[in-house]
Design a protein around this nucleic acid. Structure first.
Length: 295
DNA sequence: GTTGAGCGTT
C-alpha cells in the first residue's frame, strides 16, 4: 500500500488540508494533531450520518470503503467541565492531645481518615514533654473535610481539629456565626446537630462556665452568611444568629463600619490586613498546665 | 447574663 493524501479539516465547513497516510494505509493521529492541535480523532459523514474513525495505538484506520470516498474533520475533547481545582489541604492543628500521646498514636488515629503527609506533636524544647497539641496534613482534601467534621477521641481524650489561626486568609471570619440568647440546656452537640442541617460544621464553641451565647463555624462561608440576622428555634429556645466579631474587639463594635481595619485593644492599637483576624497581640500568659483539669 | 482557650524554635 502506498502513501495517499486524506482531506482533513478542523470543522465540517472548513477548508481541508491534505494529510499523508503511512505505509500501512493508516493516518497517524500525530499527523492530524500537527495541523489541528488538540484533535483527538476524525469523523466523517456516511449516508447522512456521522461516523467516527477507528483509532488504535495513535493510528487512524480508513473507512471500509477507503480514504478517498470521504472527507474528514476533527474531533476534539469535550471542554473539560471540571477543571475546578480542588481546594488544597492545609496544615491542621490538633488541640487537646493527651500528654502521653506521641506522633505514632496521632498518625495511627488520623490515617483512618486518609493518607497523611505530616504529623507533629509539639514538645517543650527542654523537657521534651508534649504541649498537648500538634499538626497534621492530609494528602486529600476529602480527608481533611472528614477530619474537620467531627471531634476525635485519641488515647482516651476528646481532641479538636481546626484550621490554624492565621492560615486561612481570614476566611474563618466569614465562616463563623455568633449565636445569641442561648440557654444553659443547649449543648455543643445540640448546636452541631441543628446547624449541621445547613452545612458542614467545623467547630462549635460553648463557653464554660455558661454564658448566653455560642459560636458555630461552618466550612462554607456562604452558609454562615446566609444565616446571619435570623432567629432560629432550637430545642424550644429562640436564638439569634449574627456575624462573629473578632475576639480582640471588645465593646466598641461600631468600628465594624471601618471594615475591621484598625482596632483598639488593651491599650494598644492593632492593624492587620483585609478581614483577617488579629493575631494575638498581647497573649494571655499561657497556663503551665492547660489540660491539667482534664487529667 | 448576646462575642471565643489552648496555635507551629522552621
Amino acid at each position: 500500500m502506498s502513501i495517499e493524501y486524506v482531506p482533513v479539516s478542523e470543522g465540517e465547513q472548513d477548508e481541508p488540508i491534505e494529510l499523508p497516510t503511512e505505509e500501512d494505509g493508516s493516518l497517524l493521529l500525530s499527523t492530524v494533531a500537527a495541523q489541528f492541535a488538540g484533535a483527538s480523532g476524525l469523523k466523517y459523514r456516511a449516508g447522512g450520518r456521522l461516523r467516527g474513525l477507528r483509532l488504535v495505538d495513535e493510528r487512524l484506520s480508513p473507512p471500509s470503503d477507503g480514504w478517498a470516498a470521504h472527507r474528514y474533520w476533527c474531533a476534539f475533547p469535550r471542554a473539560s467541565p471540571e477543571p475546578a481545582p480542588r481546594p488544597r489541604c492545609s496544615d491542621l492543628i490538633v488541640l487537646g492531645l493527651p500528654w502521653k500521646t506521641g506522633e505514632d498514636a496521632v498518625r495511627d488515629y488520623f490515617t483512618g481518615f486518609g493518607e497523611l503527609l505530616m504529623v507533629q506533636v509539639k514538645r517543650d524544647a527542654k523537657t521534651g514533654l508534649s504541649k498537648g497539641f500538634g499538626f497534621i496534613k492530609f494528602a486529600e482534601y476529602e480527608s481533611q473535610l472528614r477530619a474537620l467534621g467531627r471531634r476525635h477521641m485519641i488515647d482516651g481524650r476528646w481532641c479538636d481539629v481546626r484550621i490554624p489561626n492565621g492560615k486561612d486568609g481570614g476566611a474563618s471570619a466569614h465562616r463563623k456565626v455568633f449565636v445569641g440568647r442561648c440557654t444553659e440546656n443547649l449543648t455543643a452537640e445540640d448546636l452541631r446537630e441543628y446547624f449541621g442541617a445547613f452545612g458542614q460544621v467545623t467547630d462549635v464553641f460553648v463557653p464554660r462556665p455558661f454564658r448566653a451565647f455560642s459560636f458555630v463555624t461552618f466550612l462554607d462561608p456562604e452558609v454562615a452568611q446566609s444565616l446571619c440576622g435570623q432567629d432560629h428555634i432550637i430545642k424550644g429556645v429562640s436564638v439569634n444568629i449574627s456575624t462573629a466579631s473578632p475576639k480582640r474587639e471588645r465593646g466598641a463594635r461600631g468600628s465594624q463600619l471601618l471594615g475591621w481595619g484598625l482596632v483598639e485593644g488593651g491599650g494598644r492599637v492593632f492593624n492587620w490586613a483585609g478581614d483577617a483576624w488579629p493575631q494575638q497581640a498581647a497573649p494571655a500568659p499561657p497556663l503551665d498546665k492547660p489540660y491539667l483539669k482534664y487529667e
